[in-house]
Computed example of a mutant assay.
Amino acid sequence: MATIDSSRETGRTLIYRHSLAVRLSHWVNVLAVTVLLFSGLQIFNAHPALYWGQYGADNDPSFISMEAVDDSGQVKGLTHVGLLTFDTTGVLGLSNVDGEATARGFPSWLTLPSYQDLSTGRRWHFFFAWVFVLNGLVYFSYGLVSRHFHRDLAPTVNELTLAHLTYEVVNHARLRFPKGPEARHYNTLQKLTYLAVIFLLLPLMIATGLTMSPGFNAVAPWLLDLFGGRQSARTIHFLTAFLLVAFVVVHVAMVILSGVFNNLRSMITGYYAIKQGGKQ
């Protein structure tokens, strides 16, 4: 890892933390995932219910659904999760569109396009799905060739001990972030989280997305058996997408809390600043 010692002028040391390939793939993913999320919610709105199994006909019970219902002359938005029902009027099931209450799974400000258009939503989703996949292949190839996964993301045996993991969890809960030399590398929680996202969550989301395609089913019909049917694949795809959203929310929160300018600079220029005395 390259280091620029600028302590005399600024009292800090700049380390080269992120390579160009990592930075470019990161920002392409930011764009692709954003469009995929909003267009995916547009697709979901065409039938805002999730099922398990091969079929999802009207009489099959769903375990997650959103709907607008007339309750004694008052229209409400309801969200069903298993046996539980929540009044989500104004957000889920029923939201305002151009000043009028309209039945929609997710509100218009969360979908791409904002108006109800399944065809356009699918085109946006499929195009950026390929952008996402190709970008992921480039990043994965770089990670193997440069040993990025082994050098930067693979935790050591000592880092996987219960005592060390407990120590890091407690520090994160107290918002105590690595300082000085420790800040030169990802901590263990970051490594494990990134590995889980890269090698489990994203492949699962891509595979279930392909399983929903009848054209791809002709090429790989075994995917339907693997995920228990197209409706099961759709449900897993939806849930993994929101796990990814949860990861992004936590990731952004940690970036802000641990020093937004320093973190953004490192993901734009590659250089991360560590001040003398172990303070960032």
Score class of each variant (00 low, 15 high):
M1N: 12
D5H: 04
G11W: 02
R12I: 02
I15L: 05
H26T: 07
N29S: 13
L31K: 11
A32G: 06
A32V: 10
V33K: 06
T34N: 12
T34V: 09
L36M: 12
L41T: 07
N45E: 08
P48D: 04
Y51E: 00
Q54F: 00
Y55T: 07
G56M: 02
F63A: 07
F63K: 01
E67I: 09
A68Y: 00
D71H: 01
G73Y: 02
Q74L: 00
V75M: 03
L78H: 00
L78G: 02
T79N: 10
H80G: 02
L83Q: 09
L84K: 09
D87F: 03
T88M: 10
G90I: 02
V97A: 03
V97Q: 00
G99P: 00
A101S: 03
A101H: 00
G105Y: 00
G105C: 02
G105P: 06
F106A: 05
S108P: 03
T111E: 08
P113M: 01
S114T: 06
Y115V: 12
T120H: 05
T120I: 08
T120R: 15
R122A: 02
H125F: 09
F127N: 08
F127Y: 12
A129W: 09
A129V: 06
A129H: 11
V133H: 04
G136D: 14
G136M: 11
G136A: 11
Y142D: 09
S146E: 11
H150F: 14
A154M: 15
T156E: 11
E159R: 15
A163Y: 06
H164K: 15
E168C: 15
V170H: 14
N171Q: 15
L175Y: 13
L175Q: 15
R176A: 14
R176E: 14
P181I: 08
P181H: 15
R184K: 15
Y186G: 10
Q190A: 14
K191L: 08
L192I: 13
L192C: 11
L195C: 10
V197T: 07
V197H: 13
I198T: 12
L201D: 00
L202S: 09
L202D: 11
M205G: 06
I206E: 13
I206Y: 04
T208Q: 09
L210W: 07
T211W: 05
T211Q: 08
T211K: 01
F216M: 11
A218C: 06
A218R: 12
V219K: 10
V219H: 14
W222A: 13
D225E: 07
L226W: 08
F227C: 05
G229R: 14
R230H: 04
Q231K: 03
T235V: 08
H237E: 14
F238Q: 05
T240P: 04
A241Q: 03
V250K: 01
M254R: 04
V255G: 07
G259L: 03
V260C: 10
T269V: 15
T269L: 15
G270V: 15
G270E: 09
Y271I: 13
K275M: 08
K275P: 07
G277S: 09
G277L: 06
